[in-house]
Design a protein around this nucleic acid. Structure first.
Lengths: 129, 129
DNA sequence: GATTCTTACTTGCATTTTGCAAGTAAGAAC
DNA sequence: GTTCTTACTTGCAAAATGCAAGTAAGAATC
């Protein structure tokens, strides 16, 4: 249960994902991260305690799901939910701003801007037919 | 001088405005806040030390400008720069997500979604002719 | 033109969040 | 069955945020 600072939808969204790391974890998932070690490999170097806690929070908030491929396996796999993938447009706008207004930033990969929320969403794989 | 966690444009943008308050201050300006006391009146109740420090940071980052209407006046006026106003699309996406995915949030005012970056920008008032 | 009010802060300290380094537990590889 | 990898937890240090009170200077009031 998150405590909201106000009813404002921006403030409330930030109360969920407005910490120092959550949006970067979602970004990583958009470009393919699925495991704990994938997140650790990101260039920003999140520490392990924060990562574990943040994954729990994002799962509790329904933005990601955790799947253990085989029962009892230590190798977990994380995926975006529809709700989590719906933050993609916000991520894209933040990226666009950074590229346009900050010096010497990397260009986000083409597939990042090309991605759509519908491309993700656990349990809702786009059918090919 | 901000220290960037990485070259990623999302991470870098968040290194500038990804704290608990900056985006809410920009939001307030989009809907008309111009003075220190306007910011304090926002429903999230920022404390005065944080507000003063954040306004300095946003000014240093070139997202807002501080104008003292008459020389030596204590009544300061803040305005979005072009750079600051360029974050509007990101704010709008965050708001959309909150309205769509969180329960019982306020609806942002029409003029918030209708606003365009070009409507703002200190020293660049849209000419009427 | 002195008192009071308002605006815009600063300061000091408590609390919360984040960061770092080390340790652990369990399955997978060899 | 020992070693490696993955996925964490724990303890403590540091940084960010929050709260309450104080301050300084212009603006309004008398």
């Amino acid at each position: 249960m998150t405590h909201y600072r106000s009813g404002c939808p921006i403030a409330s969204t930030l109360d969920i994902v407005g910490d120092k790391w959550s949006l970067l974890l979602l970004r990583a998932m958009v470009v393919g991260a699925t495991s704990y070690s994938d997140f650790l490999a990101a260039p920003e170097k999140i520490s392990t305690n924060i990562l574990a806690e943040r994954l729990r929070r994002l799962e509790a908030a329904g933005l990601i799901v955790r799947v253990h491929p085989r029962h009892g396996s230590n190798r977990g796999v994380y995926a975006l939910t529809e709700r989590g993938a719906a933050l993609l447009p916000a991520l894209q706008e933040l990226a666009r701003w950074g590229e346009a207004h900050l010096p010497d930033r990397w260009a986000a990969p083409e597939r990042f801007y090309a991605a759509r929320p519908e491309d993700f969403g656990a349990g809702r794989e786009p059918s090919s037919g």
